[in-house]
């Protein structure tokens, strides 16, 4: 059994540019493997999921976007605050004419673009609803993966009660926020952090782990993305870093491979090796910071040609092999 048994809501965040949407997609696929059904939802109106799964832009309804290994299904949804607001007003208030008047007055605009926290309650509220939706006595989805805002904004996004309390201290919005908060603080939720082995993303990851712990929100795994394959042995890395790789050995190798072995080529390969070794050393340092966070760590290899559905499949399998599912 995987690391996240019993978790129904997987929140995926990370510093901008670390590949959190890719990881959210791969995680959804891994969780769906073996005949399950998983919903992956985005909240930033970027259509990142449509790009990732190579499907037409997603609307406010759930579409099957991929199969998963062993017969599972991945559905995707782009949660839009405006749609969620209308749905919400209809569901809870049956406002009819007053609802339309509110829209005309700019209330929907206000609630979805300006009011603190209301937008987030609407967005997380939709995910919350999906975790509870049933047909008969079965859940419609075995798990929900939420492609959340980046680390800089995720805490405010998840901490909906605090955000709305400045606006709605009582009333149904407050009650809704309370139910969402209860889910987010329970063991049914895990917030996974995506990082690269670079200084700033790792620092942000460490900061947000501390913030989540302080807020009593369960921290999931750290997913180290875009890991470079270790081409060189430790001894070679050390030599490469000091610029001490043996030129003659390299030149001999090039000749054996039937390649040009000029000083230029040897020099280029040596410089590249030095640069690589320097990066590997920095990555080691960052990796130890990640390990010190005391959370399960998964590594995903860099996909040098970019992400397509095949690459996503491989990433999902890598997550499974490392214990995510």
């Amino acid at each position: 059994m995987g690391d996240w048994e019993g978790v129904r809501l997987h929140v995926v965040t990370g510093k901008g540019g670390t590949g959190k949407t890719t990881v959210a997609g791969a995680l959804a696929m891994a969780l769906a493997a073996g005949g399950r059904r998983v919903l992956v939802a985005e909240v930033e109106e970027r259509q990142g999921l449509a790009q990732l799964f190579d499907v037409p832009p997603l609307g406010y309804d759930e579409h099957r976007v991929s199969s998963a290994p062993g017969g599972g299904e991945v559905y995707a949804l782009a949660i839009q605050a405006r749609e969620a607001m209308h749905e919400y007003l209809d569901m809870f208030y049956r406002l009819g004419r007053a609802g339309r008047a509110l829209d005309k007055l700019g209330f929907v605009d206000f609630a979805t673009t300006i009011a603190p926290g209301l937008r987030d309650v609407l967005l997380t509220g939709k995910a919350y609803e999906a975790t509870r939706r049933r047909t008969g006595d079965r859940f419609v989805y075995d798990a929900i993966v939420l492609d959340a805002p980046p680390t800089g904004r995720v805490l405010r996004f998840l901490d909906v009660t605090t955000s709305v309390s400045s606006l709605a201290r009582v009333g149904p919005i407050n009650r809704q926020a309370t139910s969402i908060t209860e889910l987010i603080h329970s063991p049914r939720t895990a917030v996974h952090l995506v990082t690269l082995l670079e200084d700033m993303p790792v620092q942000e990851t460490a900061d947000v782990v501390a913030d989540l712990r302080a807020a009593h929100i369960p921290v999931g795994a750290v997913v180290v993305n875009q890991v470079r394959p270790a081409h060189l042995k430790p001894r070679e890395l050390a030599a490469a870093r000091r610029g001490r790789l043996d030129s003659d050995t390299i030149a001999d190798g090039l000749r054996s491979a039937g390649l040009p072995a000029s000083d230029d080529v040897v020099g280029l390969l040596t410089r590249e090796a030095a640069d690589h070794a320097e990066r590997v050393a920095l990555e080691r340092k960052q990796r130890s910071v990640v390990d010190d966070l005391g959370r399960p760590v998964y590594e995903l290899r860099r996909q040098p040609d970019g992400i397509d559905p095949t690459a996503l499949y491989e990433l999902a399998e890598t997550l499974t092999e490392q214990g995510a599912v």
Partner: peptide
């Protein structure tokens, strides 16, 4: 080139550098 060297089981360092270069 890297594949050729790996198949021959020799020149590991050069093979690795070629892999790195290709990447």
């Amino acid at each position: 080139g890297a594949e050729r060297l790996e198949a021959g089981g020799s020149d590991e360092l050069t093979a690795a550098l070629l892999r790195l270069h290709a990447e």
